[in-house]
Each structure stands twice: as C-alpha cells, then as structure tokens.
Nucleic acid binder design. Structure first.
Lengths: 364, 364
DNA sequence: TTCCTATATTCAAACGTTTGAATTGGTTGC
DNA sequence: GCAACCAATTCAAACGTTTGAATATAGGAA
C-alpha cells in the first residue's frame, strides 16, 4: 500500500508503480479521447494498479484544472419543513443522470446561515443554484453576488423573473379556488378561513383564489371567520398557528362547518383544537389543507388537501439549470423562465358533506 | 468589473489592480500570520479592491493547496424519513462553529446511490464521515474504502465498534421496556405488539426490552398478538406496514386494549386501521409509538411515544468527528467510541388507562 | 535511404491558492 | 562604515489533475 505524504494515492503513485508517466495514467483513468491510442496492455496494467492501490481521483485537483465543479447547489430554507423534502428529492432525481452532485444546504430559517451558505456556494464554484425559498430572505445578495458571477439560478416559490431569475411557482390562486370550491360543493356555507402570514408570498394569491371561488359559488365569506397566521419565524410550522387560530375561532360567536386552512400543518393544528373542543373531524367540522405533506397523509383522518407536484417541480428545476448550463457554455443567453405548476385537489377523509343545511353549530 | 477567462476574479486580478504580488494579496485576504507584517495601507487597499471586484476565494484551489477540504460528509439513508431530519440538523449545529461544511447526501434507500455517494465522499476528500444508517447497506465498502483512507467515521444507528468504527445508538432495549411498562402501568394486559422488520437492527433489542418489561410487570404476551413488519424496502415508512398489521390484528379473534407499535409511522398506520374499524384512540384502544417524529407530534391525538434525543445525538456525532480529526492530525490514534443514547417516555394523548379490567374488546 | 503516417507515450504548462525561503530597502548598533 | 537587524514584499515551488503539443518508435510506401 503506497501512501504519499497527503495520505491519498495519486496519479504519480500509479505512474511510478507502472513505470509510465502521469499523463498516460491520467489519460487511461479519465478515459480521455486519447486513451484509444494507449496500448491495451498498458491500459489494463494501469487500471489494475489503480484498483490495487485504491486510487480515487481528487475532485479538487480535477475541478481546478477542468474548471468545472460538477456541482449544483440546492439551498433550502428549512429541511425540517416536510414541504422541502419532496422538492429536494425531485431535484436529486433530476441531477443524477447527468452526475451532478447536489450540494444540499439547509438554512434552517436563519438569515445568517443563509448568507453563509451563499458565500460557500460562490467559493465552491457551484455551476448553478436552486433555491427553495420562503419569506426568510430578501433577494438582495442572491441577485447581487450569484447572478453577477453568471451562475444560473432557479428559485422555487417566488417570482423573481423581473430580476432575470428563473422562477417556479405553484398556482396558488387556482389551488385556493379548488379548496374553497370543494367545500362549497360539499354544501358548506359557513366556512372559516385561515390565511397565511403576510410575509409569505403564497398567502395573497391563495386568498384571492378563495375569494374568487366564493363569488363564483355564491357563498359570502363572513369576515369574522377569517383569520391570518402571524409570521412564523419559529419552527412551529403553522401547527401552532393553526391551533391558536382555531381556538380563537371556537371561542368566537360565529358558527362554522368547515375550515379552510392555509396549509397542511395549519390544518393539523386546527384539528387538534377542534378535538380539544370536542368537535370531531369531519363529522362536526370539515378541514382542508394545502401542500400534501407527509404528516397530512399519515394522520387520521387523512387530510383533504391541495396537492403540489413537488417532486415534479424539483425535477423540472434540475432540468432547467442543467439546460441553462449548457446554453451558457455555448455562449448564448437563455430566456428567463417562469412556470406555474398546477395543483390538484386530493380528497381524503377530513372533509365531508355539511350536516343538514347548517344546523350543526360551533359550540363544544 | 475585471473578469478572467475562467469567469471568476482571482488573486492575480487583485494583485494587478493593486500593483503588488499575488503573495501579498493572499497573505492579506487569508489573514495568514504574516499579514501582521503587511503595511496597513497595503492591507486596506487589497481588501478594498477584493470587495470591489467581488472576489471569492476558490475553494478548490485552496483545498488542494492546504490539503484540507473543510468538509464533513453526512450520508443519510433517506431524507424523506422524518427520523433523519433532526439528526441532520443536530449535526449541522455541531459543525457550524468549526465552520466545517456538511456535505449532505441522501441515499434514498437505494443501495446504488449509497455506493455512488461513498465514492464521491472519497473523491471530495471529506475529512470525516457521519453515516445515518439503516439496514440498507451492508457495511462492506464503508469499512473497506473509507476507513482505509484514514477518514474518521461515526455511524448512527448501528454498532460497528468491532470494525473499529465509532458507533452511536439509541438504547432500544430500555426504550422498548419503557413503552411496555407505560402500557402495563395504565392497566393494559392484552397488548398487541408490532415488531420491527428483521433486517433492522433496532428490532431485536427493542423486542427484548418489551419482553423483559412484560416479565417484570407480570404480563404475559399473547403470541397471537405479536406481529412482525415485513422489510420495508419501499418508502412506505412503516405506515403501510402498521396499517396492514393492525388490520390483520383486528380481523383476528384475539382482543386487545393497546398496541405497541415499532415506531411512530407504524403507530400512525395502526391508528388508521383502528379508525377504519370504528375503534377510537385512545378510548377504545391505546397506541404507543417510538422515535418522536414530526408526524407523531402533530397528529391528533398526539402519539405517546419513546422520544429519541436525535438532535443531541447529531450534535454529539459532529463533536466526535471533529475531535477525532484533531486527534489524528496530532498523529495519535483515538479510541473507538460507543454510546447508547437514553430514550425518554413522552406521554401524549394516544394512550390512556385500560377501560375497566379488559371488558372493552376487539370487535368493531 | 527518406519521407509519411499511425501508434504509443511523454513534456510541460496551466488551474488558483498557500507558504517557506529569499529579496529588498532602510535603520540601528557599535 | 560595516554588520546586523527589521519591516515589507516577492519568489518559486507545490498541491493533483488535464491536455495541447511534442517526441519516439515502428511499419510501410516511394
């Protein structure tokens, strides 16, 4: 076992052991075009020796020389949000065939961490960046530092096309409408609505969709049944928010037969509150969520929700950046892309037809 | 904006712009010991220019030269298992102060992906590896390739001390005992038990703990109420497994007032099945889980479970590897470590006292 | 023989850093 | 006035690859 001072086997070690030059070894092992000129015997000898010595090419040296890191940074705002995982895995699936290494980073909803990672992305010469966004970061540095370095970016969950950044979003308006329409179709008229926090860009369009669907269904939304989540800086994920909002709702005078929650975690909080108050879901009150995250799938009753095609979106984002890397290598400048993914209603067990016409009321 | 052919600003660019040598620039910007000798004026000029040009050191060149990657690989068997996330975040927290970059990799329960990432870890010259294990991988390559390269390893969830790998485990036996004792204390006598899949190393000790606690409590375990999960190669996470197991249980003749599930996801599946059969939790049947993952916390009723201090374990693992890196740099060889983390019973709402003495029985 | 082509291999420079050793001037000590 | 020192800076080699150009060897055609 030959070992050099660095502790790793290098091309030089192999070259010496084979009695040939470093170049030859490199050509053979990296399967360069020239390698078809290398004598079959030599080729085999080199390969054998590399295997025998346990050689692994040094990614740093290689990237330095090739000026390609074969790396794509994936910056998620918080991995502990179950929302992120399918996206990340989708991205991973998309990247694998091209053998890019996803450099997965978790900002843990901390602005400072986020900036730190941004710096690292630059230093590690990531060839592209995919950002899974939330309200945590103003886009300032992102634009200033990364785009300046001509690295393709895709941002998921935010429209930054006017800053020339490829953006991928869910059609929140359509989703919000779907959710409301579902409840209305089930006969609900007194529907409580928990809106998302103001800072979150999903909140407004989703609310707009809800209003639009209400108008279309001829249902009037009782202002007193509309609440807004506070800005969830902590890791409460909306569960806590939903819990508190629903408690407030239950304490109020207004009756309701259904709750349209901002997202699944909120919905789960709502269900907890309803349960505390002795109201069962969906018999006494229907609850609908948004996102279709794991906890909503495995809860009982399963949460009716608006599914986001997260895996597909991740895959798409990966495809985009890889295409753009190619395009930029060719010297041309691609168009800025914008896509609204279409959500889908997923009826599970947390919603049902309204009891009678509205007789079953709020009190515990 | 000076740009070189590589598209990135280098030390040379700054040197030229400042009219000094690359060395000086390097010394200033990397705050080498020598930098105290550099004239204050020069220092300022260089810094200013670096900022102005948007310089970011090339991590590849730097690592190559310094022979340190400042990188620690974190290889998780599957990020979509909510179990992994707190571990990962704990590791992250531990690594941050030392400014190591966690190279987060998600094997997605695929053996091939796992091997691929292992290779990349070697090529990227990670200074240490933390593996969040499951039954997916035989430890073969892990030992053969990584340890051979003298890279410190910590494995979480498996005892590989005999192969000289630092191991961190949960005390499954104690945990299993806790869970059973809790149910017994609540007056349950007819307790169904869903054991973990055979390949999972947690399964055996957990079961042993259960048996031991049963003996101690003077409760006999009815063999006919003991089921085992199949090997969950797919992403079903035990939810599906728990669902099916509980259905089988319910279809059987044996009555039971409580179910001790292998883990939280299993417990959630069990609850779904019970609900299908019209049995309520915890009134008609208590259910206890294991792990304390997010879905168990936000479900209603909240799942009583055996909490694993995952965040702390991750933190600890990070500390270990960083210490070992230091130790090995000093030339000495550290001892192989083994630690059993202590679980903790977390009583929530899915368990309650047995109704009467066992009158409430199985039928739907 | 000489020139040509093809095959097999090597040279040497480059990628962007870091760093031990060397080089400048300019003081100071004696 | 010369050695000796200091501060400020630079040289040059090295990290481990890759790769365009160069070289060497051989077989064949002229």
């Amino acid at each position: 076992m030959v070992q050099r001072r660095s502790g790793h086997v290098t091309l030089l070690d192999i070259a010496r052991a084979c009695g040939c030059s470093v170049s030859t070894v490199s050509i053979v092992l990296s399967e360069a075009p020239l390698s078809k000129n290398v004598a079959a015997a030599t080729r085999e000898r080199v390969r054998e020796m590399a295997r025998h010595l346990g050689y692994h090419p040094d990614a740093y040296a290689r990237s330095l020389r090739r000026r390609r890191s074969q790396t794509i940074a994936v910056l998620a705002y918080d991995l502990s949000d179950p929302f992120c995982i399918p996206l990340v895995q989708g991205i991973q699936s998309g990247l694998k065939p091209a053998s890019y290494l996803p450099l997965l980073m978790d900002a843990q909803t901390k602005r400072k961490l986020f900036d730190n990672y941004l710096r690292m992305i630059l230093e590690r010469r990531a060839e592209a960046v995919i950002v899974i966004a939330s309200w945590i970061f103003e886009e300032t540095n992102l634009l200033a530092d990364i785009e300046k370095n001509k690295v393709p970016i895709v941002i998921i969950g935010r429209d930054l096309t006017e800053k020339k950044i490829n953006s991928m979003l869910i059609d929140n308006q359509a989703g919000g409408a779907m959710a409301f329409t579902h409840l209305a179709t089930m006969g609900h008229r007194r529907i409580a609505i928990i809106r998302g926090p103001e800072e979150l860009l999903d909140s407004a369009p989703r609310w707009k969709g809800v209003q639009q669907a209400a108008a279309q269904a001829g249902v009037v939304i009782d202002e007193r049944l509309v609440l807004q989540l506070p800005s969830l800086t902590d890791s409460a994920f909306g569960f806590e928010g939903g819990l508190r909002a629903a408690r407030k709702l239950l304490a109020g005078k207004q009756s309701f037969t259904a709750v349209l929650a901002f997202d699944d975690m909120t919905a789960l909080g709502v269900i907890r509150a309803l349960s505390e108050a002795g109201r069962r879901v969906p018999e006494d009150c229907s609850v609908i969520g948004f996102d279709d995250v794991l906890p909503a799938r495995v809860a009982t009753p399963g949460i009716t929700t608006v599914h986001q095609p997260l895996h597909e979106m991740g895959l798409q984002a990966a495809t985009w950046v890889m295409e753009e890397i190619k395009v930029r290598q060719a010297g041309t400048q691609g168009r800025v892309r914008l896509e609204y993914a279409q959500p889908e209603l997923l009826v599970r067990a947390s919603t049902t037809r309204a009891a009678e016409d509205g007789k079953r009321q709020s009190q515990a």
